[in-house]
Design a binder for these strands. Structure first.
Lengths: 215, 215
DNA sequence: CACAAAATACGGCATTTGTCGTATTTTTTA
DNA sequence: TAAAAAATACGACAAATGCCGTATTTTGTG
């Protein structure tokens, strides 16, 4: 029994999706949400869900941001984008956000059913037109470089040096050894790095630093 | 009536494909070829073909190079890779070479039929597992350069699931919560993962797993 | 069915890490 | 030159992590 949630601001389309799903007995619709924010709230109460069918254009919190959030906090939950728009930007962002599939709303019940099964089975599902756009994006590495980077985080030379060593998986004592410093100093640097990046452990620091091209 | 050619060095598999196609009346098999070189020769005599089902591993000229050649000289001809291997390198190269789809040979007649129709319609077709690998390659631009993978590391489904959550920076208790397990079990899984990957901490595990496209 | 593999769970212990202090020295810059 | 920023260093404590056992239940495969 696959536990499903639907997120869409259009109640008509939620109904349509419900009907499509109702044909199949191996699905159980746990709940639906109006928008990303609503979804997050409901998940915080109960995240016992296997898969989410997610619209993109929504008020309060859109489907891309919601996907980011869910995949960050509940990576085990599968997400299939289910939308009327198939422009490059949406597809690109959805994939980057971690979506497991991208279907157009016109999809027929049988294909939706199969897509959900494939996804639960560890695969990905895409309508053919989306798949083609994906391949094209893949062949055109231009877009990969474009990274929106609002924040202005500044680390000192030493801090970057430490962070680089940290990202190699070195332990504090080895980093200290490499840089001819005391372990205490390394720890203090890392403490300051965490404060500046607003994170609380190695992994987050490294990920955030990479996203902001600091290392 | 869609005109199809099959390229495969295994005559048995050509026969299998022929049979799969014979179920459908909108296909006509124009010819088959033993290898890429053979295909090129035959196309030079007569390139009145809509779509090619292409094996990868072949003597004389492999499927990747053949795809490159065909797409260069006859861009209107659609090409679907049809192979037993689904390793990253093949998928990556096939896409770069310009393939319009990538199916595993296990594919059933109906799916093959639909895939061909989708492709002729300007879309792309992929088996779900391939689609997932494509998305992962897409998200991990590191792999574009590397793609050298000698070792054969095998993690269980559960282990990969845990590793994925670990890579998001989640702590053990949150992972346990997400997967409805005890913290002890998570720790044991991580212990086993470390042993298999021959590493001794999170970061190394995640890096090694990414390099081997396990996550 | 029988066997092997995988998943689940718990306890203990040493080490590492994250967070909070405080404090001195060096470098940068206004 | 005076003030600010950066780099250095140490101590203490709680939490998280890595590593070693063992053991039962579930799942998958021949």
């Amino acid at each position: 029994m696959i536990k499903i949630a639907i997120v869409d601001d259009n109640s008509f389309l939620i109904k349509a999706a419900q009907e499509k799903l109702s044909f199949f007995e191996d699905f159980s619709l746990k709940f639906s949400a109006d928008n990303g924010f609503d979804l997050v709230e409901k998940l915080e109460k109960n995240h016992n869900v296997d898969l989410i069918l997610m619209d993109i254009e929504m008020p309060k919190m859109n489907g891309i941001d919601a996907t980011c959030f869910v995949k960050q906090k509940y990576p085990q939950i599968k997400i299939i984008m289910l939308t009327v728009f198939d422009n490059d930007e949406n597809i690109f962002n959805a994939i980057k956000a971690g979506a497991d599939g991208y279907l157009l709303k016109e999809v027929n019940p049988k294909e939706l059913h199969q897509g959900i099964l494939d996804t639960m089975n560890g695969g990905a599902t895409m309508t053919p037109s989306i798949a083609m756009k994906t391949l094209k994006l893949f062949r055109n590495p231009i877009d990969f470089a474009v990274v929106a980077n609002c924040e202005d985080i500044k680390l000192t030379t030493r801090e970057i040096e430490v962070l680089e060593q940290l990202s190699k998986g070195l332990k504090y004592n080895l980093i200290a050894d490499n840089l001819f410093l005391s372990v205490g100093t390394i720890r203090k640097h890392i403490e300051n790095i965490y404060t500046k990046l607003q994170v609380h452990n190695k992994l987050e620091a490294i990920q955030k630093a990479k996203n902001n091209n600091l290392i």
